[in-house]
Amino acid sequence: MAGVAVGGTAALASGGGSFAAAAYFARRVLTPDARRPDDVVVRAADAHSITLDTTAETVVPGRYGLWLEEGEGHARVGDVLELDAGAGRVRRELIAVDRGVLAPGPARWNQYFHGSPPDESLDLPTEHVTYDGELGAMPAWVVAPGGVPTTRWAVLVHGRGARREETVRALPPLLAEGWTCLVPTYRNDEGVPSGPDRRYALGLSEWRDVEAAMEYAVARGATELLLGGWSMGGAIVLQVLDRSPRSSLVSRVLLDAPVVDWGDVLAHHARQHHLPRPVGSLARAMMRRRWGHRLVGVHEGVDLALTDWVRRADELHHPVTIVHSADDEFVPFGPSLALAQARPDLVTFHEWRLARHCKEWNTEPERWEAIVREFASG
């Protein structure tokens, strides 16, 4: 998201249009992507392996998925079997073709590994429900241990522009510890009500949709809540803890590659694309101040200072476990580590290597699930 946005903005800024560049950057950061383009090429496949063009994603060890046929099909791939850097090809284990036809041509990398709801991906009894959000009916999945809801509910929040399938990897360890899992949607997700401005607020409005999901869990008998969040889902969860009266029911928080400080994320992408610092600062001001709202198309101001939980570390009151890779190319792990260092009484940090953004489970699933089980137990 931001990498693409900054790349286009840098070209504008180099031409002297700093004001226009800042507005463009801010709008791209806050605007949901209209479509998810294919980003890998399948060169060949047989019953046991698949050959792809090498990219920064396709050469990393671990288990991943591939969306086929513009998302209608899906396959799962495993570790690298052979890397031919000279030819720009990588051959990986083919685990399964879940649906569709795997053939040479374009595809889209899927870090979730799972490409369907829990009843299809893991054969888990799944309720497809809706709950009443601020903007209307919001779809959700409910997965209970043995199909019988308990009084302990885990509410799992996916990231910006992601799908609910991102959270499926967390279900087995949480179910094993007796947690009923609720996977909600939030405004601007595909197929759900949009916000009044059709823009993301980077957690500053989306938290109300997650609070509504928590209310649904309470109405179903939940007396204790675990909140989990991936990437921007982490930023949403942190706002819930700060703003929702229901946060008193939250006993623990699990964050995977979370956005702990949106200002740091935007600055990272600006540096990567050589965007002048004043342009990034101006974009932040446009998001926050009333005079900039029309320029960036927001209904509510987006104050990134409210998302800086390193600065706000003293305001945390819940036990938090953070899993974050030092090799995360999209959301730098520095703020996650800094938050853990600022609040060692509440925050436990698990550092990964090799994994790219939100792909810690993919590279070391056994370690990831063991951490979640231990944190969720008791």
Rank of each mutant, 00 (worst) to 15 (best):
G147W: 01
L171F: 04
P184W: 10
D39C: 06
H299L: 11
R288L: 11
E93T: 15
V296Y: 06
A23H: 00
E93N: 12
H128M: 10
P245C: 08
V90A: 10
Y64D: 09
A213Q: 03
A370F: 00
P344C: 13
S248E: 15
L12E: 12
A217M: 12
E374Q: 12
G280D: 11
G100V: 10
R289K: 12
L282Q: 10
H269S: 03
R36P: 02
S244C: 09
V157S: 01
A235C: 12
G65A: 07
T31M: 11
L102M: 03
R169I: 08
G146V: 04
H74F: 15
R246L: 15
A340K: 05
E190T: 08
R246C: 08
T150P: 01
G191V: 03
T151V: 15
G105H: 10
V80Y: 06
I50Q: 01
S248M: 09
D46R: 10
L81H: 00
A2H: 03
R284C: 06
V279H: 05
T223N: 13
Y186L: 08
E366Y: 07
W309Y: 14
D84N: 15
T167H: 04
T126D: 05
P332T: 08
R277C: 03
D256C: 06
R108F: 06
P37D: 05
G62Y: 02
A44E: 14
V240T: 10
P258S: 02
R353D: 10
R198M: 05
D328M: 00
